[in-house]
């Protein structure tokens, strides 16, 4: 009914964190000139950008699905479930269950993806042979 709103809200929070992390990384880069060993890893702001794109992309395409099914309309209150209290309660329940699970799954997949990406970035360059 409005499960995509949870991911959309998380995307807004991630975007805010990403901007502040990016600022700190730029400041840190300008203050230190020497190259550290851990600079071989991927910057946190870039990883947060991946999470943001996953969340926004999913939320936008899911919002379209809700428009398709007539659950989201272009006039107030925008969510058809908000027009009566029984449907609204069901909508909030769906947000708390399905919506939260969606956000958690995306965040978990992103976390695993970051770990794998870090290990790939640290991997020494070798001759790749076709398997």
């Amino acid at each position: 009914m409005a499960c995509f709103l949870v991911s959309a809200a998380e995307a807004v929070v991630v975007h805010t964190i990403e901007k502040s992390v990016e600022k700190k990384e730029i400041q840190l880069k300008s203050s230190t000139n020497h190259v550290k060993a851990d600079e071989m890893t991927i910057p946190m702001s870039r990883k947060l950008k991946w999470l943001k794109y996953l969340l926004i992309g999913g939320a936008v395409l899911l919002a379209f699905e809700h428009v398709w099914h007539g659950e989201v309309v272009p006039w107030s209150p925008f969510l058809t479930a908000m027009s009566n209290p029984a449907d609204a309660a069901e909508m909030f329940h769906e947000m708390a269950t399905v919506g939260v699970c969606m956000a958690l799954l995306i965040t978990s997949v992103w976390f695993i993806m970051c770990k794998i990406a870090d290990s790939i970035a640290r991997r020494p360059e070798t001759d790749q042979k076709a398997v």
Partner: peptide, 17 residues
């Protein structure tokens, strides 16, 4: 890629429910 994977993961949860 991120857009489609994000939507796929979200629909996967929907499918499980």
């Amino acid at each position: 890629c991120f857009m489609y994977w994000g939507a796929s993961l979200m629909w996967l949860v929907d499918a499980i429910f």
